[in-house]
Design a protein around this nucleic acid. Sequence first.
RNA 1: CGGGGUGUGGCGCAGUUGGCUAGCGCGCCACGUUCGGGACGUGGAGGUCGAAGGUUCGAGUCCUUUCACCCCGACCA
Length: 490
Amino acid sequence: MAKEVVSRKENYSLWYNNLVTKADLAENSAVRGCMVIKPYGYAIWEKMQGTLDKMFKDTGHVNAYFPLFIPKSFFSREASHVDGFAKECAVVTHYRLKNDPDGNGVIVDQEAKLDEELVVRPTSETIIWNTYKSWIQSYRDLPILCNQWANVVRWEMRTRLFLRTAEFLWQEGHTAHATQQEAIDEAEKMIHVYADFVQNWMGVPVIIGKKSESERFAGAVDTYAIEALMQDGKALQAGTSHFLGQNFAKAFDVQFANKDGKLDYVWATSWGVSTRLMGALIMAHSDDNGLILPPKLAPIHVVIIPIYKGEEELNLLRSQSKILKKKMEERGIIVKIDDRDNVRSGFKFAEYELKGVPVRLAIGPRDYQNGTVEVARRDTLEKQTVLQEGIADYVSNLLEEIQVNIFKKALKFREENTHKVDTYEEFKKKIEEGGFILAHWDGTSETEVKVKEETKATIRCIPLDMPEEAGVCMVTGKPSKQRVIFARSY
RNA sequence: CGGGGUGUGGCGCAGUUGGCUAGCGCGCCACGUUCGGGACGUGGAGGUCGAAGGUUCGAGUCCUUUCACCCCGACCA
């Protein structure tokens, strides 16, 4: 008897459950809104991390690490930056506990108060720029191209598992350059690195663009972003790259002597992606049977499930499975044999579908006789019986095909849910259906605010590689050079 | 921080206008039969009903306070 499946609209948690849970600590816990990443979920994150890390290094970056705690005063330096983060910071005020003399357990020792409070980093621009100041004196010290893998904390008023947890894992790149153009190039380069990763590894199509003024990062001159569309019709910002101008250099007084011997402020960028990407991965691909993982990021590519009666058959199939496993491993395929004797094979089928393992091989006595194996692919749920001979090639090709197919499917979904709209009336109707809307906008914040208030939709980005097209703003009728992307977002 | 909702074994829930020993499904344990798509039978373990206080002969149920979580806003990756 198959169990009832929770529908996608009702609940994403079915898919999440293999990967992550809410932090489940004592009552009154202040860590609400945090998450526990389970081993299987972390294995995916490690794959993402490894791939991105290599991409960063291939583009000339190096890893470094900076402190978790940032002196409060650092935040006062860059005005718009503090505006953006002040409301969501965790602050350390004391450094010691003691036993309560009244016997109520442990209390904060009020005598151990810090002179200056420490802020748990919500992002590291301030402490990094304070550090860079001592690293930079001459144009010969530039560029500095550092990346940091770290956790950060943002005390959001409302959290959402994966998409907006109070603590999350991410990487943040922070670069310093001698010229404006070099910094702009860096910011653009990195948003393209992100797009490459999200599309070609995660299989999620994205639109690369610039943020409008009101959606910009606190302290940035320009914010580039990649925007993805989830299956429920909402947009998700999957990564950002910021051209910071000289804002942080000025705030932290980071000057260098240029080739002419004159002092100038350093030009900066920062860029980051987080565990939110795992949310994107899940929400973009999963179906009612559970996760669908792209082979390039799946912790297990292939699971082999022996189907047997009795110990004799099991042993026979077990050793045959090992042979198949070895053949595939020689081709770099990650294979798991699930020969657990205490759950039935149908249960295993369902379990690995829930986990999103791309390919399943089932081998039973009949297959053993015929020298065949049943191959099932997770993305289409199709099953086929193929010869064991040449299985490594077959599976290797299949994995590549699945990787491409997942992307195509997501792209098709996005295209079917992207609409050009020319009037505000039509816009209001279309936005209710979800998806991306391409419309003309007069470039003003006022119009953007009005649209947001009336429809809850925001400008996700001003696409970079979309042809210019003259038109008029759908709201005000003022001239516009190009269409921008509107959507409701997470 | 505003509006709405929910707290009952590990998970999901039922429990009527207060009334007997607090139930059900899943899961868990034991034994047996099963095993090519989430098995079935029999037996069993597991609960301070979110917390504190109150009303009452009697509270999961009523009242007060409080805490947490979820959803919708505002804020944000």
